[in-house]
Amino acid sequence: MILPVVKLGTLALKTICKPIANRLKKEAGLHPKFRQLIVSIAQANHQFQTQMQRRIYGHATNVKIRPLNEEKAVQAAADLLGELFVFTVAGAAVIFEVQRSSRSEARKEELRIQELQAMKQRDEDLAREIEHLKQKIEDVEHLAKGRGLSGLLHFRNAHTTEDGKEKHS
Rank of each mutant, 00 (worst) to 15 (best):
87 F>V: 01
87 F>M: 02
87 F>P: 00
89 V>G: 02
89 V>H: 03
90 A>W: 08
91 G>A: 07
92 A>V: 13
92 A>K: 05
92 A>T: 13
93 A>K: 00
93 A>N: 10
94 V>R: 01
94 V>G: 00
94 V>Y: 08
94 V>W: 09
96 F>R: 00
96 F>V: 00
96 F>W: 04
97 E>D: 04
98 V>G: 00
99 Q>H: 00
99 Q>D: 03
100 R>G: 00
100 R>F: 12
100 R>V: 00
101 S>L: 05
101 S>W: 13
101 S>N: 06
103 R>F: 14
103 R>N: 05
103 R>M: 07
104 S>A: 05
105 E>V: 08
105 E>H: 10
106 A>T: 08
106 A>F: 11
107 R>C: 01
107 R>V: 07
107 R>S: 05
108 K>W: 09
108 K>D: 08
108 K>P: 01
109 E>A: 11
109 E>F: 13
112 R>F: 15
112 R>V: 11
113 I>N: 04
113 I>P: 02
113 I>Q: 11
114 Q>L: 11
115 E>D: 11
115 E>T: 07
115 E>P: 03
115 E>M: 11
116 L>W: 13
116 L>M: 06
117 Q>G: 02
117 Q>V: 10
117 Q>L: 12
117 Q>D: 10
117 Q>W: 11
118 A>Y: 13
118 A>T: 13
118 A>D: 11
119 M>L: 14
119 M>W: 14
119 M>S: 12
120 K>T: 12
121 Q>N: 14
121 Q>Y: 15
122 R>E: 10
122 R>A: 08
122 R>P: 02
123 D>G: 03
123 D>M: 04
124 E>A: 13
124 E>G: 02
124 E>N: 10
125 D>K: 13
125 D>R: 14
125 D>L: 09
126 L>P: 01
127 A>V: 05
